[in-house]
Design a protein around this nucleic acid. Structure first.
Lengths: 334, 334
DNA sequence: TTGTACGCGTTATCAA
DNA sequence: TTGATAACGCGTACAA
């Protein structure tokens, strides 16, 4: 594999000039440039970005940590990050934490060893040591799907509390009083916890007593949604509506409710969260809280790449979240 | 940021010894090792994998190129690659080609400049220059979702022809004769093309004349499936069954058929391809061709990482694909 | 506009 | 078992 030195010799110039042709072509006389370009061609020169990173202490690579690529909302945000990074000629290394803090720790360590210029993290534990030490060491990072509106670091997210509130309010406006929630495990992320708070508060604001029997925590999975709804439907006084922590759980709940013999949405109204790609193709089409995952990814990348250029004050970007009404919710008939 | 040199000085040893403690701890006397470890602790030493890569000419990073992370079948295969790589302490850089060859070219170039140790590619164009030059330069790579059973490079895939045949055979066995196909654009990938060949051949083997009016090409999208099925249903002699190139198209077709006033599966039997995560949760639950995407990703990573250690003969691993019968197909009633 | 020469942090070779 | 030192490929002062 040929190097700048080979090219330099072949072109009869110095390595510095070759380097200039690569990085600041305008600073080289046209004739010289052509000579060098020709030489590069001749010896099939391939640029070594690793060596460059080593010399400049910048790898032009960022790390992205998400819970799991299998959840399409994270796939969407990942796409947003990638496309923005791509446009700035930055590579993205992806890691899944599987909602496990220890794995998140490993990833941060490995990515920092790889000399990534910054990190975008959808964290599982806001209060862990990881973030603390990143802050202490002034390492550039941005939190994605963050629940935090302030603090000593940049973050992009939505108001999950408000999302939970909106979903519940919609159900109440349809006349529902017996409203349950199938939530993602609070230990896995605090997003689900905030949505639950919004749900609880909305009940209270509308004079509906909170019944803790109507909350089930589960993992963020199809089967989790299915099993949970069955449990809830077998209650002495079963719910007429359910708010699910995400659209996968909702899809599972749809299946579970049908298997329990219900007709949807007549017998049970269902609201999801995320507004994933296929939400409007479900049967019934899913009423859900829209989350601009792709834009959030783009924005996180934008903020991070600004940070790696120059230090700046923490930015907290809370994006708009809206209720999207489709077919899975209807007036309470009881 | 402290380096091996700082650690060495603090511990009163040479940099070589520090390096040994990191890489081959057993080759260092225990007492010395402890001294070094302590020194590392003291100056908060952080290992620089970039510098290592530079010195060893191995980045311990591989590149993964897929059409788009938005398709869950590629998300699954990506997960397989990542988990295998993770286990071997290898990082994965991900890139989306969006089914565009020029983008695939850019990605290969950028990733090679980043000195990845190898590439896993779900290619858009088997016959392009990219693969040729990778072979010429003996650069380690593995094709994923490959349609190729032989050739001078390693590949992991399934028999798409057989998949198409199986799907069609199933429909014929249910008494269908008017069977259409909504295919992914042949120009985007040859996988769809092979599936279509299987479809065509199966029709022939069963004495059903091929009607080119019954083939529609579209992009791999929900709306593509919806629009295409509507076109086909408005034919003078509409189909009673449809084979879709993937599950997204099938999901779109389900929606489109319903919008056209049909009852499923009574009025139209639908077969998909991929068996994505949510296939069994669709309404009706989707009959489809199962593709072991996760395992394929794992296997591709395994092969690639073997290749980066030592040169070896090309491996072609064609995995099993099976028909999964659910609720979206039923006996032809016409 | 171009060249010289050093530095980046680690590993590898060879010698002790 | 350990140490001294060259090498990896590029960027960049500084000098010319």
């Amino acid at each position: 594999m040929s190097t700048v030195l080979d090219v330099a010799r072949l072109a009869g110039v110095s390595t510095a000039t070759v380097s200039r042709v690569i990085n600041t072509p305008d600073s080289v006389r046209e004739k010289t440039r052509e000579k060098v370009l020709l030489a590069m061609e001749k010896c099939n020169y391939k640029y070594n970005a690793l060596a460059r990173g080593f010399a400049t202490k910048r790898s032009n690579t960022i790390g992205l940590i998400i819970p799991t690529i299998s959840n399409s909302v994270f796939a969407e945000s990942t796409l947003g990050v990638q496309e923005y990074a791509d446009q700035k000629n930055i590579r993205v290394i992806l890691g899944n934490s599987y909602y496990k803090y220890s794995q998140e720790e490993n990833l941060v360590k490995a990515l920092r060893e790889s000399q990534v210029d910054g990190l975008i993290i959808t964290t599982t534990n806001l209060k862990g040591e990881i973030l603390k030490s990143l802050i202490d060491e002034k390492f550039p990072f941005v939190l994605l799907f963050s629940t935090i509106k302030n603090g000593p670091f940049s973050a992009v997210g939505i108001d999950n509390y408000r999302g939970g509130y909106l979903a519940t309010e919609h159900l109440i406006s349809l006349g529902h009083k017996r409203i349950c929630m199938v939530a993602g495990n609070f230990s896995m992320t605090d997003r689900s916890f905030h949505r639950w708070h919004g749900y609880k508060r909305c009940l209270k604001d509308n004079g509906i007593p909170y019944d803790k029997e109507l909350l089930v925590q589960t993992d963020y999975s199809l089967s989790g949604g299915r099993d949970s709804i069955k449990k809830l439907l077998s209650l002495p006084s079963p719910p007429t509506a359910v708010f699910c922590s995400n659209d996968y759980i909702a899809l599972g709940a749809i299946k579970g409710a049908r298997e329990a013999g219900l007709t949807l949405p007549k017998d049970l109204s269902i609201v999801g969260f995320d507004d994933m790609q296929t939400a409007s193709y479900m049967v019934p089409a899913l009423t859900t809280i829209h989350q601009p995952a792709y834009e959030m990814g783009q924005r996180a990348a934008e903020i991070l790449l600004q940070m790696t250029d120059r230090q700046l004050k923490p930015i907290h970007d809370m994006m708009e979240t809206t209720l999207v009404v489709r077919e899975s919710t209807t007036r309470c008939l009881v």
